[in-house]
Computed example of a mutant assay.
Amino acid sequence: MEDKQKNESRTEMDGETDLSQGHLEKVLEHYPFTIQNIRLKSSRSGRTIWEVETDAGTKILKQAEMKPSRMLFIADSHLHLQQNGLPITTLHQTNSGGYCIGAGDYAYVLYDKVEGQEMIYYNVDQLRLALEFAAKFQQASKGFNAIEGGKPRGRLGKWHKLYRWKLQELEGNKQIAQSFPGDAFSVMFLAHVDNMLERGKQALIDLDKPFYTDWVKQVIDEKSFCQQDFTFARLVEFNSEAFMKELHSVTYDLPVRDIRIILNKVMKKMSVWDHDLVIHMLQSYDAINPLTEDNYRVLWTDVSFPHLFCSIAHKYYLGQKTSWSDEKYIWALQNIIAVEESKEEFMQNFSDIVSEIKKNSGGKKNG
């Protein structure tokens, strides 16, 4: 994209942020399409989606409750991935050459609707496609020069701070749990919290090793980014590959953040840390974007940190899930404990597992 186009005004509206037909038509006037029909698709978590029938096919209009500068950064990242060949929906320009529209504390983007097969976490072949996509995403993100005016997010070099915060909160939740001796969730939580704290503290110590700091420097030099939350909800299977139908968010961080998130999501659904399935998933990633042995040490560190255990305690003691019963909270905690405990053997066999990943992925052990 030419500099002239990149520097044109992206904040093209002021005032209205309602969901009326007239307001939507006013937004869509900024695009070079003839609008035939607008249909509300979903509205939740500060994001509203409409399907828009146009003379050039069906489009998706997304309204997000965020500052336009933040959406500009995401849209610019989307365009970078699109131009570098990632299987991702086409993002559309406005008549003046911009890629998002600002309206107060809201922002809009318009992109193609993508039809494809739903991807599910229990399908081994689709897990392979998803991890291959994650690897392609990382490769396509390299060389990103963010546009001026965009508001980025990043955690590069900030894992120490994140780990410390989570450990401090876990210590605080331990004290809260001790004040509720008759609470079933707290009793179960207290039976495992010390082990989780020990693992978390060891992971924090491991971050001081060169394999973490050196990789942070490398990723900064590469100018790459990852997703903020890698989920199947934004993917479909299309032409025998995973295809991204919406870029929700991005952040500057190590690529293993995406890998750790998807591993934890899948294993939580399985209610056990399935060693063979994890190896299958990592082989799929490594065949496209090989990681070094030191890179895998960073992944092992992040996987060993009790992110899931911290998360369920955070939700329970802050009462975030108002619709959840005590029984559902207890079931969720039991499930996470089962995953964390079955993970131990995997974590202790680093060299053998990395060798197995490399043997079947075709990658090189030392990068």
Results as ranks from 00 to 15, higher is better:
V272F: 10
A184D: 11
D229N: 04
W273S: 06
I357W: 08
D352F: 15
P87H: 01
E171C: 13
H280N: 15
G102I: 01
L277I: 02
S323R: 09
A64T: 11
S69H: 11
I176H: 15
A103K: 11
K4V: 14
S325R: 05
I353P: 06
T251Q: 08
G182M: 02
E356H: 14
I35G: 01
T292S: 15
T58E: 09
Q82M: 12
I330D: 06
E51C: 10
S224Q: 09
D352Q: 15
L170Q: 06
Q36Y: 10
V27N: 05
S96N: 15
L127G: 13
G319K: 04
G367A: 04
T94K: 02
E16G: 09
R155M: 09
R153L: 11
A135E: 01
P210L: 05
T213Y: 06
R47A: 11
D14V: 14
D55A: 00
I74P: 05
N173D: 14
L207Q: 01
Q283T: 10
S179G: 10
W273H: 08
V27R: 07
R260G: 04
R39H: 06
M1K: 12
Y329G: 14
L79R: 11
E356G: 09
F305H: 08
A103L: 10
T34F: 09
S69T: 06
S323W: 09
F309A: 11
Y163I: 10
G85T: 09
A103Y: 07
S342T: 15
D183M: 00
T54L: 12
D302P: 02
L19W: 02
Q178W: 01
Y106V: 13
Q334G: 14
Y108N: 00
D274T: 02
H92M: 07
P68T: 09
V278G: 14
L204C: 00
G116E: 04
E12F: 04
V114G: 07
L86Q: 04
T54W: 00
E237W: 00
G104Y: 00
Q283L: 05
I35C: 02
G15E: 01
H80P: 02
E169F: 04
E171K: 14
F225V: 03
A332N: 11
S304V: 04
M347T: 13
L207W: 03
H280L: 14
K6M: 09
N264S: 04
A332W: 04
A56E: 12
A64N: 11
R199M: 10
R39P: 03
Y296W: 12
G150L: 06
N7M: 08
R257E: 12
T89V: 08
R260K: 13
E118P: 10
V219E: 13
D112V: 01
A146H: 08
L79V: 07
N289W: 02
K174F: 05
A135I: 02
A233I: 04
G57K: 07
N145R: 09
A242G: 03
A64K: 14
L299M: 12
D55F: 00
G85F: 07
V193S: 15
L291C: 03
T11Q: 12
D214C: 07
L170I: 01
Q82P: 03
N335H: 06
D105R: 13
Y316C: 09
S311V: 06
G22S: 11
K217L: 15
T251S: 12
D194S: 11
G319W: 10
D229W: 00
Q175R: 14
